[in-house]
Amino acid sequence: MSTFLENSTLFRKVLMALTGLFLSVFLIVHLAGNLQLLLPPDQASIQFNQYSKFMTSNLLIKIVSYVLYLSIILHAVLSLIITLKNKKSAGGGYAYDKRAKVSNWYSRNMGILGTIILLFLIVHMKDFWYEYKFGSLPMDAEGNKDLFSIVVSAFGEPLYVVGYIIAFVALGYHLLHGIFSAFKTFGAYPSRISSLLYFISTGLTILLTVGFIFIPIFIYLKYHIA
């Protein structure tokens, strides 16, 4: 494994790009699934719980979910290896440094943004994934585990909603740099293709970020304020 990861700077970046893009595709699916929370309450409850059951019992989805967990781990471990090597390669730094002017802050701080996302993931997995798998959930009218009510009650706490928004803003900036950077790592070189991929990457980032931020706010306002 060590020689595999030490293969070359470019190869390590390709692995970062592959795992990152796979995780981005997962985000599209995850957001699409979550949009069911926006349905009218009765329908949302039944449909979301059915969907949760399907997502945790289907064999194919189970296999994909293991690839997903592996991707998260590989992406995080690689980022650590890459960051440590880069620190060494940077060579000391400058007494007077104005380099921040020539690049975007989020492209320089992918590690910090990624750490925020990782911390969020731990809380998120504990509160929903772990609860669904190992907690004692109430049943809905159809006899499915009632994840919907757990989700709705979780977002009744304003601080919890704010925490989610912060995590999604971090995710948004991470994707804003990450998705396009991944395409560049694959070698998106003719400028026409590069421009098209930049358009797609940025569009997808905006869609995902706005979508993920909207849902907790919507639940808070609809189920806890009105």
Binding site: I82, S107, H177, S181, K184, T185, G187, Y189
Partner: peptide, 26 residues
Amino acid sequence: GHCTNTLACQVECPQEISVSNIDRMN
């Protein structure tokens, strides 16, 4: 080190070499 596509290099290059060269190398 690794290129993480911050694009700072093309801003400071006195010959204004584009980062599209890096895409092509990749």
